[in-house]
Amino acid sequence: MKRVFSYAALLLGALACAAPFALLILTSLMTYQQTIAYPPEWLPRPLTLENYYQAFTTSPLLRYFGNSVLVAAATVSGQLAAGAMAGFAFARLRFGGRSVLFFLILATMMVPVQVNLVPLFALVARFGWVDSYWALIVPDLAGAFGVFLFRQWFLNLPQELEDAARIDGCNPWQFFWRIALPTALPAIATLGIFQFLASWNTFMWPLIVTNSDAIRTLPVGLAAFRASMHETTNWPLLMAATSVAIVPAIFVFLALQRFFLRGLMEGAVKG
């Protein structure tokens, strides 16, 4: 009895989560005429891929997509490299001011992005980076969460590994590159998927620093596409463009799910 009730609740929840996605896909396969039929219809008849074709040919969707891929690839690489190196230094090397520096970096995790928005924009404008890839990429090349995650990982390395490296006469870089880093694949996957999703979905900053279609990433591009249809909204066309924007994020999540869930636990502190 209890199990039946639990299953019912779970199914209802899953339905509520999945229904908007189903509506998104179904609408994207309809003709415009069908979406303004009354009473409304749910299944596409006729089924058409025309909206996807239109979305790619009449809007800069492909350009937005390429921009998103470029920015995500650049920031993921940057976060991984900078985070692994700094996390290793904090966990395994001794130098003056280590705790103060680490505390400062941790402190940046407590600052909501909105607090930094105005000075960050002023800074980026001073550099002449407004409406360029630099503005989207450079401020996001390293982050406290990445440093924190890798430090945590490298703290757990067995001391024997370090002793072995020492006996072999490794310098710190060789210890990091040949011994420590190859053990860190799970941390790399965790940070990689986090940064990919963060970069792929982020909206506010790109909204502020971009104003041309050549630079816009998918979320800002979609918002601009939506805003361009103020009189009559072509819902199926909009839904086709939206599907294209969300599919990569869902694929990456499905492929790397377990790393994501683990990182979520560790990063719950960050929020």
């Binding site: 190196m85 130098f95 280590r98 940046t108 390293a142 710190p172």
Partner: peptide, 26 residues
């Protein structure tokens, strides 16, 4: 390790630069 502190600062440099300039400073 040989040259430990110097290596530490070298490894920290990219993260410190980005986080300092684009998070702490703002």
């Amino acid at each position: 390790l040989a040259g430990e502190a110097r290596w530490a600062w070298l490894l920290l440099l990219p993260a410190l630069l980005i986080i300092g300039l684009f998070s702490l400073l703002p």
